[in-house]
Design a protein around this nucleic acid. Structure first.
Lengths: 237, 237
DNA sequence: GAGTGGTCTAGACCACATC
DNA sequence: ATGTGGTCTAGACCACTCA
């Protein structure tokens, strides 16, 4: 006895593959529910159940009356809400970012251990983030090659101010989830200097692993800032 | 033309009221889907849609083959994973807690501003949390009266080691959501002393607002610890 | 085996977006 | 007016739990 028709769980897996393989592209529409029902030989309700699950996971975006689209993932502006006196407050803060350096570097044991990357090289970016013109976060970012090779051809001055949307549009990589680890440390000389503080000043450090749809790590980022200006809010559910 | 039958959105609201009013009690079963369908005069599918939504919000707990139950909310053991070398690691850490003082205090403007509490008094607890016998977090906890009046009659030595389950079983209060705000500061003398550190040592402070099903604040808690031992992990979605 | 939730169907009808 | 997703129905059948 073999099952000869697909369940919604199967469809969820199939739809994910459509996205990972690029058949369904980031930011573009997927076929209508009734079309998919015909294509896969199931009832519309079954298609809907699969789509609703993916929508709850942030993979698809539904809007009543319009077609369902493939999400580009997180937008990455989530990092700066960690500091006092910024965006979420009233008035206008002006968060900006500047990429200071881009360099191709080998993936060493430490980095591959953290990320699971098995290719040889990665890109390393140094990036400063500003609030109201003042340097607030110094970031070191690793992204693997060759997946992000198109980034190399972009001049750092032409980087978009948010990296994740750029990853999506340029490299077809959607960051769906991330894990932050916040810890406290005294600033090293180099970090302190970049932030306009003295060596040994209390610092905060946020290590972030960013994951794509398949759960693979697509970025590792370390951000350092002034602990005394730091404030992090999180929902616990 | 009036709508003469209930939609699943209406049912979600109705079911929440059943819980808030105590008709459906924390930890107990709710009627079966088919029974509810008859009671409210709708199809089973409509009941299911409402229940699924509440289940996704953590309000109800479904288990295949068994009846659906009302959740007791968060368990409150979430705070200690913030420190290094603890539970989530291998081996056995032994997190414990000890309530040092319980006192009835008036709700001042600051507290009512933060929490929205409009009654006159609150209970204030001082509580120390330990990892492997060593004092790690010093907590100051406010809960409003008269909602928590049953707590007064319990001797601090008889408190359960997790407070949220005690709130649920004793006071019918389920903490469904919380908001943590993490910041760094130099330890005040009193906090430092309680933690076995010297005044001015780098400290971490976590302010938490805990919410019930209706979104009302049911607890305000401030936790202070050693910044050097602090490590916080969070998922970003 | 009786009772519960889980999946799927086929179709009706509603609500929103767009032309 | 057409196409899309949103809601609801009534019923069949499956899968799990427990006595």
């Amino acid at each position: 006895m073999s099952k000869n028709s697909l369940g919604y769980v199967d469809l969820v897996a199939i739809f994910k593959k459509q996205i990972q393989s690029g058949v369904w592209q980031i930011g573009r529409s997927i076929p209508s529910e009734s079309a998919l029902a015909k294509e896969f030989g199931v009832a519309v309700g079954t298609i809907r159940q699969a789509i609703i699950e993916l929508s709850n996971d942030g993979v698809l975006i539904k809007r009543h009356g319009k077609s369902t689209m493939v999400s580009g993932g997180l937008n990455g502006q989530s990092m700066l809400r960690f500091f006092r006196g910024n965006v979420s407050g009233s008035g206008q803060a002006s968060p900006t970012a500047k990429v200071l350096a881009v360099k191709e570097t080998p993936i060493d044991k430490t980095l591959s251990g953290l990320t699971g990357w098995s290719t040889k090289n990665a890109l390393r970016l140094h990036r400063m983030r500003f609030i109201n013109e003042s340097p607030t976060l110094f970031e070191t970012i690793y992204i693997p090659l060759p997946k992000f090779k198109k980034i190399i051809k972009v001049s750092p001055r032409d980087y978009e101010s948010l990296l994740y949307p750029m990853y999506a549009s340029l490299c077809e990589v959607a960051v769906m989830k991330a894990k932050d680890t916040v810890s406290f440390e005294l600033l090293k000389k180099s970090d302190a200097k970049a932030l306009g503080l003295r060596e040994g000043h209390p610092g905060v450090r946020v290590d972030r692993l960013a994951f794509d749809l398949s759960g693979a790590v697509v970025e590792f980022r370390t951000s350092v800032g002034d602990a005394m200006a730091f404030q992090y809010s999180a929902e616990v559910n």
